[in-house]
């Protein structure tokens, strides 16, 4: 019987998109979007704004999603000679009342090792993992390959 209740409890938890722990209730995610991918061999990308409405600093430490085995926040930097490079961004600190933007040409959620193609018109769930162990699930709509922002 016990395992049945556990199963039900687990089912309820997983059925609640955006289920949040402790500090995560202060996190407000805006304008999430993603570009369609060509197959699964190339990395995908997701963008959004992450706002901390609380009064304690939040640290984004990781990502998790069903659509990619290795999702990671990366940062694109373009130097004075116009050369762009991209590398893992590490932990992202979001100050109280602060906002961090994941946007083209800067920070972005890089979805490496896609498990399925990102198809325009579909959406997927991306979990933001914070340093205090809390998580925020974000539903990310997939826009066209040529999209330039959350409006397409």
């Amino acid at each position: 019987m016990k395992s049945k209740y556990l199963t039900i409890a687990a089912a309820i938890l997983t059925a609640m998109p955006g289920f949040v722990f402790a500090g995560a209730e202060d996190i407000v995610v805006g304008d999430p979007w993603s570009r369609a991918s060509i197959g699964t061999s190339r990395p995908g990308v997701a963008y959004m704004t992450i706002r901390n409405t609380g009064d304690t600093e939040m640290t984004l430490t990781g990502l998790r999603t069903e659509v990619a085995a290795m999702p990671q926040v990366h940062r694109t930097a373009t130097n004075g000679s116009g050369v762009s490079s991209m590398s893992p961004a590490g932990d992202i600190e979001i100050a109280p009342a602060g906002t961090v933007s994941l946007e083209p040409g800067g920070l972005h959620a890089m979805l490496m090792k896609l498990s399925r193609p990102l198809i325009e018109g579909e959406s997927y769930s991306l979990i933001l993992i914070f340093g205090d162990g809390s998580e925020v699930a974000v539903t990310v709509p997939v826009l066209g390959m040529g999209a330039r922002g959350p409006e397409g």
């Binding site: 570009r35 060509i38 061999s41 190339r42 990395p43 995908g44 990308v45 990366h74 694109t76 373009t78 762009s84 991209m86 083209p104 040409g105 972005h108 890089m110 979805l111 390959m145 040529g146 999209a147 330039r148």
Partner: peptide, 17 residues
């Protein structure tokens, strides 16, 4: 390069615009 997830599609989308 086509395996570039961020800058290249953004540049191509900008140029398309």
């Amino acid at each position: 390069f086509t395996y570039c997830p961020d800058v290249c599609p953004t540049t191509l989308a900008d140029i398309s615009g």
